[in-house]
Design a protein around this nucleic acid. Sequence first.
RNA 1: AUAUUGGGUUGCUCGCCG
Length: 420
Amino acid sequence: PGFHTKLARSYGSAGMWEAALVSLIGMKSIGCKPNTNAFNGLMNSLIKAGYSDEAYRVYLKMLDVGCRPDSYTLGVLTKGFCKVGKIDEACVLLKELKEQDCVPNVTVYNLLLDGLGRAGKLNEASKLFEEMSKQGFRPDVVSYNTMIAMFGKSGKVDRACRIFQQSKENKCSPDVITYTSLIHALCKKGKLDEAWKLFEEMKSDGFVPDVITHTVLLDALCKSGRELEALELLEALEMGDCVPDVVTYTSLLYSLRMTGKVDEASTLFARMVEKGCHPDVVTFNALLAGVCKSGDVDGAFRNFAEMQDMGLKPDGYTYNALIDVLCKTNDVEEAFNVFEKMMDDGCNPDLITHTQLINGLCKAGRVEDACSHFKDMTERHCIPDAIAYNTLIYALGKSGKALDAYELFHLMKKKACHPN
RNA sequence: AUAUUGGGUUGCUCGCCG
């Protein structure tokens, strides 16, 4: 059975759900039947690899062969739904399974909280957070951490701190993640002093900050222009026992390169490699951002070639950065070539890709083309946000098409997209 | 040994400061 489940999970990671099922069901050839755990494991593999719909099919098959779902099943599927933005379906499933006396647990609620947060539905998350206690599920440290991180990411430090207060009142012990999330929230708002205070506080309370905690602080130093202090922190880490990782180095590389410190960035890049820390696609993208900022198209493509020489696959960020630098250097034609290449390469253009192209067309005086691209974009199920509307509204207004601009402005409001 | 939380990279405009 171990072999069959392992094989099934491998198929799952490749999205081959049918082959995976054959492997699971094939257990009967050795006189075994796949149990709930085996199905849960397969669904998890599928979801981790981005095959949520396929996971749901496996779920149906599992019911079909008479396997009862348990709280893990519910958890895995909740994650799957949330990952593809189908939060409502996750809630429906929760209700359904509750009626079949499949008991949800705190983990399931935590998954929902996180899913709501990532979908930007903070109010609904807060409501659920209050609701869960009433339903008899006491929030645990993960619940609190999830809420803190979610408020922190959207710039609501005060609310994050209130949740922290609340967790103390409810006698829920914080952990390193709690503190790191709060420190991150403070840093994001530029409150570095308070962040450092909390950092000291956590240490004196006996918590051991890890590489992530330190990287949050280092990144904040970089982003507020204190690269020297960031470098000092890095050196301290390199000498201590909290080893900096690729994220730590990338954060510094990004700031150095963004602020034009090209040589320092190169030196640091060499140093990280020397320390056995391998740059990843984000590292290259971070450097690429700096190259693009200076409008250096050739340099951008050199970076693009170099990352592939190192065996790294460009992602959406990479292509978007290239498209943007081309648009900004008045080469929309080439930007569209990269756009094609991106799709050939299996990268899905996103809202940012389209907005950049629309902006590029506008700047090249091709406002009509921009409008039709905007239309194409919506037909490709890419829902414009305020920035996308602004881009086109601004260009329309500037090119004397005030009426069209006004019309789009109304459309934007009609689509419940808040003008800023 | 089957599920949940923290760090780095990409888009518009405007304002403030230099």
